[in-house]
Design a protein around this nucleic acid. Structure first.
Lengths: 175, 175
DNA sequence: TAGGAGTATTTCGCATACGAAACAAATTCG
DNA sequence: CGAATTTGTTTCGTATGCGAAATACTCCTA
């Protein structure tokens, strides 16, 4: 039989397990509440995200939308389908490039966006308020480091979003 | 018109946005790769998680399983249905409490568990290796603080997990 | 300038994921 | 004891979420 691993190693494994577990907890629970809050306005979580993104930016192609939401195009197609049926959003073929579909809010969608105060992932955002400014900076630094490792592991093909103010970068998300 | 918010506040909001964005990135990308890796063994992501949980513990009720996986019972029912069809897992009514369904690996499931080296969320776990022990401790502390805030916000109804959801845990330490 | 490579979107089939309601067994309480 | 309540699981309907293949269009190059 193998020797039991040394103490420090075992301890580190358990710390990693706790980190993974907590990350999943924070993500899933925040997502769950976002969904529940969105429901009171007849929206789903991702639909809320779409509305907030479009209301901030005005017009996005389907691919831009799917990148902002960290999901695949085929997923967003379905979300937009349902939102279009609900008259929240409108598709229009681009004139410069007739392959791309531009997505905009309808008046109804715009009105809804204004009337819904909830931000996607608001539970998690509120939790962040309990951190001090210093803690928040530390957390961001550590998460960014992890992000970099992950992007490297995925093969640098995917460019990282610039850490600060990119031209019209925008945030995400409530899936 | 409203005054623009003061600099520090604006900066803080952007930091929060970046944290949310990065959290989602880490979670979704890790999940995506786990799924892809599991596929080479004819498993899905959640199925891999089930196999690893059961192979470590032996037997879990459906509710215990769903708590460990942070999903709802109705979701796990479907996952177990498909795994049962694939002869990876077996359901058995408990004798003490005939409402409870115990889930165990079949020999085939046990063999598969041994032959699959992948841990769920392994991409994220590997990224954690790039942190120093001190950084990992700091990260865990900050995430735990957020977890606590979130649980409080959800109303203390939900008890914090005791590190693992094992059915008959030997509690050597409080926690 | 025709054709091939590449890009944007949709379609399809499948596997989560959720809440609400239906069921069944256990527990509580009058 | 027996009805009311609680708890564990399943069923149902709907919405993501994904990869692979199909479509439609653009760009590049021989």
């Amino acid at each position: 039989m193998a020797m039991p691993p040394p103490f420090e190693e075992r301890e580190e494994r358990e710390a990693f397990d706790r980190i993974v577990e907590t990350l999943i907890f924070l993500y899933t629970e925040s997502r769950r509440l976002t969904k529940e809050q969105a429901r009171s306005h007849d929206l789903t979580g991702p639909q809320l995200t779409v509305i907030k993104l479009l209301s901030g930016i005005g017009e996005l192609s389907l691919t831009e939308l799917s990148e902002s939401m960290q999901t695949r195009n085929s997923t967003v197609t379905g979300i937009i389908d349902r939102m279009e049926s609900a008259d929240l959003v409108k598709r229009a073929r681009s004139d410069e490039d007739r392959r791309v579909v531009k997505i905009r809010l309808t008046p109804k969608g715009r009105a809804l966006a204004k009337s819904v105060p909830i931000e996607p992932m608001s539970l998690f955002r509120e939790a962040l308020e309990t951190l001090s400014a210093h803690e928040a900076r530390t957390l961001l630094k550590l998460l960014s480091k992890l992000e970099k490792s992950v992007r490297d592991a995925l093969g640098g093909a995917i460019p990282a979003p610039s850490t600060h103010a990119s031209p019209h970068e925008d945030h995400t998300d409530g899936r």
